[in-house]
């Protein structure tokens, strides 16, 4: 097991290295110049050159990359080209908002998905099943940039229940969480349904039924509990994705999270900020992945041995 953990961590490190190299070259390959973005229309050539030197952008790419990794080993993420602030400070400022929204969205997703998925599984092939699944699909078929403004229109303007946008207390969390959560709920409820159906076909469920246990106890106690593992895995993976921020939702609701920071940095060609954001996003993703692998390996020894054969 320890060996397995070690190889997983090592490969995670390789993946992170690959990601960082890829983002570094990609962002430099895209046309557009951060100095232009910073200095605006009327800056003169001498300013640009001075700025380039001050920011170290005049160095060859490979030197810049090497320097970046050297700084990384000292946990130095650098400073933003635009605001000249330390990037670690910027990330720490945004992280709580992103975490908050991610967890709230997961709560919304779970709250919608479990009842829908269970109903659909128990009443398989009935109108209930179709209704629940269609409902979840509708949630997924609405793009966030459409749903966000519609929710604002209905719940903020007409009903006046929640603030329109911004991050100001629990009320302001509701609409973005619903916007993000519904799409997730669709995937999740289908997952709940299908795994539950699979589990309900297993022998031990039949045994439980044969023992004369009530149907609800069979489904909830034996069925759902055993169906949980893949569902939790999916939740974990989604959390990894959500931690990377939800660009469109954050933009619509003026939510000061990582996603918004990333997209703004890309558009401004703020290289070190883009790199730091991608580092954080992929770190979250890789971390969740390693955890998932570990859980699986722990549950199913075949993966541990079979995969490495």
């Amino acid at each position: 097991m320890l060996n397995f953990l070690f190889t997983r961590l090592l490969s995670a490190l390789i993946v992170m290295f690959g990601v960082m190299c890829m983002v570094f070259f990609l962002i430099h390959l895209v046309p557009g110049d951060p100095v232009d973005m910073m200095l605006g229309e009327s800056a003169r050539l001498a300013d640009r050159e001075a700025m380039r030197v001050a920011l170290g952008l005049d160095q060859p790419l490979l030197v810049q990359l090497q320097q970046y990794f050297v700084n990384l080993t000292q946990f130095d993420l650098g400073t933003s080209l635009h605001s000249r602030r330390p990037i670690s400070e910027m990330l720490l400022e945004r992280l709580p908002a992103t975490l908050e929204l991610a967890i709230a969205a997961l709560v919304v997703a779970v709250a919608i998905a479990f009842p829908l998925g269970v109903i659909a599984a128990i009443r398989k092939d009935t109108l209930w099943d179709r209704g629940a699944m269609s409902f979840s699909l509708i949630g997924m078929s609405i793009p966030n940039f459409w749903m966000g403004p519609v929710l604002i229109l209905v719940f903020s303007l007409w009903l006046g229940w929640f603030p329109v946008s911004g991050r100001d207390g629990i009320g302001s969390l509701v609409l973005p969480a619903i916007t993000l959560g519904t799409a997730l709920a669709a995937v999740l409820s289908r997952m709940v349904r299908s795994t539950l159906l699979e589990v309900l076909n297993e022998d031990y469920i039949r045994t439980a039924r044969a023992k004369g246990l009530s149907e609800s106890s069979v489904v909830l106690k034996h069925g759902l509990r055993n169906a949980l593992l893949p569902v939790i895995t999916l939740l974990g993976l989604q959390l990894g994705v959500l931690l990377g921020g939800a660009v469109i939702t954050e933009t619509v609701f003026s939510w000061p999270g990582i996603g918004k920071l990333t997209i703004e940095a890309i558009l401004k060609r703020d290289y070190p900020v883009v790199q730091a954001c991608v580092l954080l996003i992929s770190l979250a993703y890789v971390f969740v992945n390693v955890m998932t692998d570990l859980v699986y390996a722990w549950v199913d020894p075949r993966i541990r041995t079979g995969g490495k054969a």
């Binding site: 604002i152 303007l157 619509v252 003026s254």
Partner: peptide
Amino acid sequence: HVGDATVRVLKLLRGE
């Protein structure tokens, strides 16, 4: 800062 134009209008109408 409210980037989205529609949201900015709604915020004004709501008194935010």
